[in-house]
Measured scan of single mutants.
Amino acid sequence: TIDDAFRAIERAIQAENEGRYREALKHFLDGGEMIVTAAEKEASQKVRNLLLHKGKEVLEWAEHLAEWILE
């Protein structure tokens, strides 16, 4: 659900702030994927587009974090 997705993102932010970057990455990926999944089930085109945009933002952040971890 969207609530689960945002809880995962909150955990990711907390982990990132505490320097637990790999854990943060996992939570960002989980949250982003949950948002995209919820968007695919959404009946309203406007809400679907907003959710897809937010999911994409979260997944892009996860990608940047992963690249930073690997440096």
Rank of each mutant, 00 (worst) to 15 (best):
A24H: 04
I2L: 11
A5Y: 06
E71C: 10
E57I: 13
H27P: 01
W68I: 10
V36D: 01
G32N: 08
A12P: 03
L51E: 05
E16V: 15
F28A: 06
L25A: 05
K54M: 15
V58H: 01
L59I: 07
I13K: 06
L59P: 00
E40Q: 14
R22Y: 14
E18I: 05
V58C: 06
H64P: 00
G19M: 05
R22M: 14
F28L: 12
L50W: 15
E18K: 04
K46W: 14
T37C: 11
R11L: 13
L51W: 05
A62L: 10
N17E: 09
E23I: 03
E42V: 14
I9Q: 00
Q45H: 08
R11W: 07
D4V: 05
L65Y: 03
A66N: 08
T37H: 12
E57Y: 07
H53F: 08
F6R: 07
G55K: 02
A12L: 06
L70P: 04
L50N: 09
R11A: 07
H53I: 14
W61Q: 04
W68C: 10
K54F: 15
L65D: 01
A66M: 06
D4H: 11
E63Y: 13
E42C: 14
G55D: 02
K26N: 05
I13W: 09
R22N: 12
E60A: 15
I69F: 08
R22F: 09
Q14G: 04
V47K: 08
T1H: 09
I69K: 00
E71F: 05
H64K: 15
R48C: 13
I9Y: 01
I2G: 03
A62W: 07
E63N: 10
E18L: 10
V36F: 13
A38W: 06
K56W: 11
L50S: 11
K26H: 09
R20S: 03
E16M: 15
E63K: 14
D4E: 10
H27C: 09
N17S: 13
T37V: 13
H53N: 13
L25E: 00
N17Q: 15
A66E: 10
K54W: 15
A5T: 02
D4C: 11
A43C: 12
F28P: 00
H53K: 15
G19I: 03
E40A: 14
K46Y: 09
D30S: 11
L29D: 00
A43R: 10
L52T: 05
F6P: 01
I2Y: 06
E60W: 08
E10P: 00
G32W: 15
Q45G: 11
A12D: 00
R11I: 07
E42D: 02
M34G: 05
E71H: 09
Q14D: 05
H27D: 07
